[in-house]
Computed example of a mutant assay.
Amino acid sequence: MIMEKAEALSRLAALPPVAPGQSYVIDHFRPEDALGVARLYYTVYGDSYPVDTPYIPERLIQAAERNDIFCVLARTPSGDILGAASVYRSSPPNPGCYEIGQTLILPEYRLGRIFFLLYDFTLTNVLTDPRVEATFSEAVCHHLTTQKLCLRLGMLATALELNLMPAKAYAQEGLTGRTSCLVFSRVNRCSHALVHAPQRYAQDLALLYQGLCLDRSPGAPRNPEPDSACSLKVERFPVAGVVRGQLATVGEDLDARLDRLESGSPDVAQVFVNLADPGCPWAVDQLTARGYFLGGLCPAWFGPDGLLLQKLAQPPDFDALQTFTDRGLAVRDMVRADYTRLTRAAGSSR
């Protein structure tokens, strides 16, 4: 029987600290590493990490066996785990589209090269795995370190998630407001797919597709059939104040489904629309009429690509966003321009 989080935390609290100054190797996760990974998460996050799996060794082993996570570690000869980085399944409906993140280093070892070595090992030994069709990473915009590491992995900026993280997530770094993330993407392999680009975002999408080298061709948009139903999977993240909708198939009942998605007045509502669905432009019209605006492109999100739209309870601070590449700045500017059009239209309608 697998232990619950409370029992796991009690066990982790009783473990001795990891000794400083140890040598290490960078390697793939092995089942015997699971307790060391759990201690790493507990040392860095205490009991506040929002997902239980890393704290419970048996669950982490099962996730690795299902290929839900590829974990890269810095391991000492004694078996202590000094740092970890993960490529894992998260929100995308496409099981071959993995998120890159969950990078943790013990405080005593953060001045060394572990961080960069973990990413270099991931590049050469994980991203080449045929099961990893595509990857994305949500790089925070209050510093540039994660963005630079995404470039090190050959990723390109394709979207901007505004106000994604709550203020308390980075309060220890002195931040007082919500944090935005620049989304970086990389596609290793994909099948041909159609793109039904909404006219209002055609130029933006043309720019975002540059450099991705995908096998895509334009489709013929059409409105959904009368009385048709959406395929809309909803995920809620109460701690973050975020709700996400994965709109795989557009249906005429979209407006009613969005009413339910937005219930509870989340701080951030995101909808990922399947660009391969002919009803995508119609769905975008419905979303923008409700106050959604452009987030960007999410390659291979559904297998085919996703178009992110977002709606915020509070205005974003575009001037506070840090990014340093021409492409990152272009993503910021196109999202800002669409948000400005939205707010101007809302003001003129009053």
Rank of each mutant, 00 (worst) to 15 (best):
P198W: 02
P198N: 03
Q199E: 15
R200F: 00
Y201H: 14
Y201N: 09
Y201V: 08
A202W: 01
A202C: 01
A202N: 08
Q203S: 12
D204I: 03
L205C: 10
L205D: 08
L205K: 10
L205H: 08
L205V: 03
A206I: 02
A206Q: 13
A206H: 10
A206W: 08
A206M: 02
L207G: 03
L207H: 09
L207T: 08
L208D: 08
L208V: 08
Y209S: 08
Y209R: 14
Y209Q: 09
Y209F: 15
Y209L: 14
Y209W: 14
Q210A: 15
G211Q: 07
G211H: 05
G211K: 06
L212F: 07
L212H: 12
L212W: 07
L212E: 07
L214Q: 13
L214V: 12
L214N: 10
L214Y: 12
D215G: 05
R216K: 09
R216Y: 01
R216S: 00
R216M: 06
R216Q: 03
S217Q: 15
S217K: 15
S217H: 12
S217R: 15
G219H: 08
G219L: 04
G219Q: 09
A220Q: 15
A220K: 15
A220F: 13
A220N: 15
P221F: 03
P221I: 02
P221H: 07
P221D: 06
R222F: 00
R222W: 01
N223T: 05
N223Y: 00
N223H: 02
P224E: 11
P224S: 15
P224F: 11
E225S: 12
E225P: 00
P226N: 03
D227Y: 09
D227M: 12
D227N: 14
S228C: 07
S228N: 07
S228Q: 09
S228P: 05
S228M: 10
A229D: 05
A229P: 00
A229G: 02
A229I: 05
A229C: 04
C230P: 09
S231D: 14
S231E: 13
S231M: 02
S231C: 07
S231L: 10
S231G: 04
S231V: 10
L232A: 05
L232W: 09
L232E: 05
K233M: 08
V234R: 11
V234S: 04
E235L: 15
E235N: 14
R236H: 02
R236V: 02
R236L: 00
F237K: 12
P238T: 00
P238R: 04
P238H: 04
P238S: 00
P238M: 05
P238D: 00
V239L: 14
V239M: 09
V239G: 14
V239T: 12
A240K: 13
A240N: 12
A240W: 15
A240V: 01
A240M: 13
G241D: 01
G241K: 10
G241I: 06
V242Y: 05
V242N: 01
V243F: 07
V243A: 11
V243L: 04
R244C: 01
R244Y: 00
R244V: 05
R244M: 02
R244L: 04
R244N: 02
G245V: 11
G245F: 11
G245W: 12
